[in-house]
């Protein structure tokens, strides 16, 4: 097993609230790693800290052998971590193709002068970006909507487009925040196939998901967060039997009943 990402003692506070406490976990190259937990357990916060939307107070990430810059989204993407959002965030006034092309930004180099002078290199890069974006649309299965404005796509296609856009940044680790939320059974099973394809093509996947069946069926290993702390990390079968996890979920249900 080769480690791809190692979180060491990550801590994040909002005012007096400790959203994450000493969260440490390890994601290996090539696996699908699940992150689950009751509502408000800190899953999305962990995502935001990892991808630089928030800066953690404590801890560090080691990614692919070296430390990750904290709170610097663009540099983190550049290192090879891409994400999607729980509530889809596409560029609404751009077509599907353009969304994915935008995702290729960080892997292209053309500067202001190149654009203004429209050099050969610029044109070649633009052509490459276009073709690559189209391939990605094909990859997620929505190439027929290439020229549709993203806001006019169906919900499931929007989710797929967001994944394609994230893949355009050429990540080593793809972090998906509840990709199956709001999907029906067919869409979920198609999504599952897609994630498996992504994994088999060599991209490691970090998955936050509520759909327990999806997580258990898809993930190689799973970590469970509760009240901002990691309470378990194991293969799915073991996690399901873990008493602390059962307690957390029942406790969560108990809280929700109030």
């Amino acid at each position: 097993m080769i480690k791809l990402l190692e979180a060491r003692g990550i801590g994040k506070r909002f005012g007096g609230l400790r959203a994450l406490t000493e969260v440490s976990l390890t994601i290996n190259k090539g696996e699908v790693y699940g992150l689950i937990g009751p509502n408000g357990a800190g899953k999305t916060t962990f995502f935001n800290v990892l991808t630089g939307a928030y800066t953690p107070e404590d801890g560090e990430f080691v990614f692919n052998g070296s430390e990750l810059p904290l709170g610097k989204p663009d540099r983190i993407v550049n290192r090879g971590i891409a994400r999607t959002f729980q509530n889809i965030r596409l560029f609404r006034e751009m077509t599907a193709l353009e969304n994915v092309m935008a995702g290729h930004f960080i892997r292209t180099k053309t500067g202001l002068l190149g654009v203004l002078l429209q050099t050969r290199h610029t044109r070649e890069e633009e052509k490459l970006t276009t073709e690559r974006a189209y391939e990605l649309l094909k990859y997620v299965g929505i190439e027929r909507h290439a020229r549709t404005l993203s806001r006019n796509l169906s919900y499931g296609d929007q989710r797929r487009l967001e994944i394609a856009r994230a893949l355009a940044t050429e990540p080593r680790l793809l972090a998906l925040d509840e990709p199956a939320a709001g999907m029906n059974a067919t869409e979920t099973s198609q999504l599952r196939t897609l994630i498996e394809t992504i994994r088999s093509d060599g991209t490691t996947v970090l998955l936050i998901e509520h759909d327990v069946k999806l997580v258990m069926g898809l993930c190689d290993r799973v970590a469970v967060l509760d009240f901002g702390k990691k309470i378990a990390e194991d293969v799915p079968a073991e996690v399901q039997r873990n008493p602390a996890v059962i307690e957390a979920y029942l406790g969560g249900a108990h809280h929700a009943a109030h």
């Binding site: 989204p73 994400r83 596409l90 994230a166 355009a168």
Partner: peptide
């Protein structure tokens, strides 16, 4: 495209690595 991305959704623009 990066400008349009910032205009449409700044957070998402950051998330695809746009400075």
């Amino acid at each position: 495209r990066a400008w349009a991305a910032i205009r449409d959704d700044e957070l998402a623009a950051k998330a695809i690595g746009i400075n």
